[in-house]
């Protein structure tokens, strides 16, 4: 939570100045409506921006880790390989606290050990403007400690009746606010309005996990043989939608695309998904996770257990996107609650 003294009041016109200022020297993406649904898209006019209370269908990961990106160019006759690390000055507006937490996790993954220049360069060239949200029936960020973001953004917007209360997470954010628009110190009544909104948000969650976040890795560690995996494995289509929409799923495939002249081409990386059948299949045909049940167990464990030791954080940020997108209504919170119910960790409490 930001220090109360840090809040600055920004009018709606003031936000327009900020966005217009950003558009002068950056490519700006933000929350928009696509076919009536909240999504991220390119913003060329301030009026395009439609901050959403509920999560966008796809997360903002595509602006840092595009669905398809070139890693290098090659020339077959000479064997020359030229690395491609492309980025543009950009801004992304309207990330919710869960999205910002997810971005912080992606930062850790791509900076761990050998740094991924492609992701990290793009990340460094991006201004992040967060925005407050309100849960729908799938959201459960209050159960995984991601309801508020304290870091990972430059500017954060809390919408109130008359405009916005802002706070900043970086010097760059403070600099941008000062340079591109005008803010005033937030009045006590406006801060009270914000407190009321926050309380309303906290009470609005219809989905909650029935165990504290710190117990979840242990609960998942006990769940390898749970009947839950067979149950959801039997209905899963293996379509990979959950991987696509997840803001922390960042596994990828790398493949070569040869040009029509058959001489040059690109080595590209594209999103891959651990719930897809071929993900763990090796040359020769052996598949290390043959069944959908095994693949779902892997994905769920990656969110709640496998990466927690290395990165000291859950990799599920409670956005509920995978549950919303699932064609057969596999719900990550429901599944987790079933595992919690089976676990001795909760029974011993």
């Amino acid at each position: 939570m930001a220090d109360k003294n840090q809040y600055r009041y920004l009018t709606k016109t003031g936000l327009k100045s900020l966005i217009n200022g950003l558009m002068k020297d950056r490519v700006v993406y933000g929350a928009v409506k696509k076919d009536g649904f909240p999504a991220f898209g390119r913003i060329t006019r301030f009026e395009d921006l439609e901050l959403s209370q509920t999560p966008t269908h796809l997360s903002a990961k595509e602006f840092f880790f595009p669905q398809r990106e070139c890693l290098l160019k090659f020339d077959i006759p000479t064997g020359a390989h030229e690395p491609v690390v492309a980025s543009q000055g950009q801004a992304v507006i309207g990330l919710h606290p869960c999205d910002i937490h997810a971005l912080n996790l992606m930062d850790k993954v791509f900076a761990h050990g050998t740094s991924d220049a492609n992701y990290l360069t793009r990340r460094a060239d991006t201004v992040i403007i967060g925005a407050e949200c309100f849960p729908d029936e799938y959201c459960f960020c209050s159960s995984v400690e991601t309801m508020n973001a304290n870091a990972g953004f430059d500017i954060f917007l809390h919408e109130i009746k008359s405009g916005f209360l802002t706070h900043t997470g970086t010097d760059a954010g403070r600099h941008l606010l000062g340079k591109l628009t005008k803010t005033v110190k937030a009045s006590a009544s406006r801060i009270k309005e914000l407190d009321r909104l926050k309380k309303k948000k906290e009470g609005a969650f219809k989905t909650r996990l029935n165990a504290p976040a710190k117990d979840l890795p242990g609960i998942y560690a006990q769940s390898s043989d749970s009947p839950v995996w067979g149950k959801i494995g039997a209905i899963c289509y293996g379509c990979g939608s959950c991987n696509n929409v997840c803001p922390t799923c960042c596994c990828f495939d790398v493949k070569d695309e040869v040009g029509a002249n058959l001489k040059d081409g690109l080595r590209v990386r594209v999103w891959d998904g651990c719930t897809l059948e071929d993900f763990a299949k090796v040359a020769g045909g052996h598949n290390f996770r043959k069944t959908r049940a095994e693949r779902l167990r892997h994905r769920f464990n990656r969110k709640f257990r496998y990466l927690t030791d290395k990165f000291n954080a859950l990799f599920c940020v409670g956005c509920g996107r995978c549950s919303r997108a699932c064609l057969v209504k596999i719900n990550i919170a429901q599944v987790t609650n079933e595992l919690i119910a089976e676990s001795t960790i909760t029974k011993n409490r």
Binding site: L71, L72, G89, R123, A124, A172, H175, V254
Partner: peptide, 20 residues
């Protein structure tokens, strides 16, 4: 533009492509 670099994002000095 570099003066506006997000100070919380990881360092990107001298990053080379690990895919070359």
């Amino acid at each position: 533009m570099n003066s506006l670099l997000n100070q919380q994002s990881p360092k990107t000095d001298n990053l080379v492509s690990p895919y070359l």
